[in-house]
Design a protein around this nucleic acid. Structure first.
Length: 518
RNA sequence: GAGCCCGUAGCUCAGCGGUAGAGCAUUCGCCUUUUAAGCGAGGGGUCCUGGGUUCGAAUCCCAGCGGGCUCACCA
């Protein structure tokens, strides 16, 4: 255990967490697997918060692996037997889905007919996201566990301690809810719905209870998937059943964690090491939620930023409330590059550098050769989605030859910058029509350019523009250039036109000018 | 009511025991036959307040003052 001491001064939170785990298992010398759990409710498409939880939990796992060679396991538990409470606002078939309210998510059909159930669809989406990031995880379906009988032993234990558990939970509930509360939610044998109804214990040893439906008492087993647990009890049960050693949760679940901890005392008393993180807020400091459409989704982030930049954002200060909105993306992209640079400068900070955590210790040799915000400025100034043009300007700017890997990185982030430009800059640009006078001048310009047999160089282009500009704006050439930017791009400024035209080459320049006067 | 977080440059934030930082904004200079997306330099801060610990506190502890979020239905 001496090896912990080498790591205990590391301030990076994944190491601090990993050391919490190791301290707890200090006295166990036998070989053992450390289980990390993350929970997911597949009532809708995966939320960026769910994703953050998996990512961060995985970072703790990496840090642990670095300190000590132990087997570990990252469990992604999907609570897919949970009842559908309401139809998500963005769901494409609300009428069809609304017929399945209170059914277990895993027993609702998928109306897109691509998946075996509603839950399976959302589970698959989650797995897709996680696979994109190459996580190594074990997906567990709640429904499968309940139905296979894996949870039976624990369900019987809960029934055995039924009164004890009721005594813990009831004082935390309001009067009305106390009447209907039960740790066991029977799956109705007639309707198939998850019932929130009081139960009567019939036989603890056999696992028999009874619930009331249509004024009749119906007996059922708590085992074999005939009942599901109410979620706080469910959570506590999982800790024992899946031997969970570590789990983090949002701060909204702190009271629930405390309660589940109490409940766990009556289910083999397994309680994981826990960390709570702050929730993400939108630009105005409000909680992000899908129904409001504020904040960002995973898809939106990876449209405009790299996966690494998203990981970096998630890594930073999980205990601090962070605003998650659009501007975070370019900022995070630039920060990634900065941290990468720091890593190469001072190696002793390896474990405190986010890059180590983002890449699970397998450090890349290089990264993109230009700051993302600079690239966006460049694309905005160039006013084009044409990647070869952007690439050429980047090379002019970088003043260095790029190796093959850097060139690939540049192409990757150029795609992102172009998307950003097309969706946020371009729609706000309005090209204006040239005045009659300007039209005539542009025609002269076209004629002059096309009369050249050979390609024209940047300086010659600049001179041509200058020459004709003097005819319309003899006193203030600046206005001529502004006019050209407005007519050609819909902006008040841009790159040096001579250089741009040279990169575009004659045919494209003529086409551009021609279009502006039509 | 309880819990969690925040208060550092005009704005957004990083730093979290050892000379107060970044980006944007601002000011000035340079380059370019226009503008700059460029380069360089500068200005700007009782690090919310008051105690304590320490040789030393923006940083740790306590108390207060502001601001925000979450929970007390469901998950």
């Amino acid at each position: 255990m001496n090896d912990i001491t080498n790591y205990k001064n590391i301030k990076a939170w994944p190491f601090v967490e990993a050391i919490k785990v190791l301290k707890k298992f200090e006295n166990l010398d036998k070989k053992q697997t450390i289980n990390f759990e993350t929970g997911y409710g597949p009532s809708g498409v995966p939320h960026i918060g769910t994703f953050a939880e998996v990512l961060r939990t995985n970072m703790v796992r990496n840090a642990l692996r670095e300190i000590k060679s132990l087997d570990s396991n990252l469990i992604t538990f999907s609570d897919d037997m949970d009842a559908l409470k309401k139809v998500p606002e963005d769901y494409p078939y609300p009428d069809k889905l609304s017929k399945y309210l209170n059914f277990p998510l895993s027993s609702i059909p998928d109306f897109t007919e691509k998946y075996s159930s509603y839950a399976d669809k959302n589970n698959s989406l989650l797995k897709e996201f996680l696979n994109q990031f190459d996580f190594n995880y074990q997906f567990i379906s709640s429904t499968e566990k309940y139905k296979s009988g894996s949870f039976d032993k624990y369900l019987l234990k809960i029934l055995e301690n039924y009164e004890n558990i009721m005594n813990i939970v009831l004082p935390t509930l309001r009067k009305e809810r106390r009447e209907s509360y039960s740790p066991f939610l029977p799956i109705c044998k007639i309707t198939g719905k998850v019932l929130e109804a009081p139960i009567t214990v019939i036989n603890k040893e056999e696992g028999l209870i009874a619930y009331k439906s249509d004024n009749k008492f119906i007996e059922t087993l708590v085992t074999g998937g005939n009942c599901k647990l109410q979620w706080k009890v469910d959570w506590a049960m999982r800790w024992s059943a899946l031997k969970i050693d570590y789990e983090m949760n949002g701060k909204d679940l702190i009271p629930s964690f405390e309660l589940s901890k109490q409940i766990a005392k009556f289910i083999y008393n397994k309680v994981p090491i826990n960390m709570s993180y702050e929730l993400f807020l939108d630009q105005n400091g409000e909680k992000i939620s899908k129904s409001k459409g504020n904040g960002l989704s995973i898809d939106e982030w990876v449209t405009y930023g790299t996966k690494e930049s998203l990981s970096l954002f998630m890594y930073q200060n999980p205990r601090r409330a962070k605003k998650l909105y659009f501007d975070c993306i370019p900022r995070s992209m630039d920060e990634y590059k900065k941290h990468f640079h720091n890593l190469k400068e001072k190696e002793q900070d390896l474990f405190e550098n986010p890059i180590w955590h983002i890449h699970e210790g397998l450090l890349p040799k290089s990264t993109y050769p230009i700051e993302f915000s600079t690239l966006i400025n460049l694309v905005t100034a160039l006013n084009t989605s044409d990647k070869p043009t952007i690439n050429k300007f980047c090379l002019l700017y970088i003043k260095n030859n790029l190796n093959h890997v850097e060139q690939n990185y540049l192409e990757e982030i150029t795609k992102l910058a172009v998307k950003y430009f097309q969706n946020f800059i371009l729609p706000n640009l309005k090209k204006r029509k040239p005045s009659e006078k300007e039209k005539i001048i542009i025609k002269y310009l076209i004629k002059d350019i096309s009369s050249n047999q050979e390609e024209i160089n940047a300086e010659e282009y600049q001179s041509l523009i200058y020459k004709y500009g003097k005819e319309v704006y003899p006193d203030n050439l600046r206005e001529w250039f502004i006019a050209l930017y407005q007519i050609l791009f819909g902006a008040d400024n841009g790159p040096r036109l001579g250089s741009l035209f040279f990169l575009y080459k004659k045919d494209k320049v003529i086409q551009l000018l021609q279009e502006s006067i039509e």
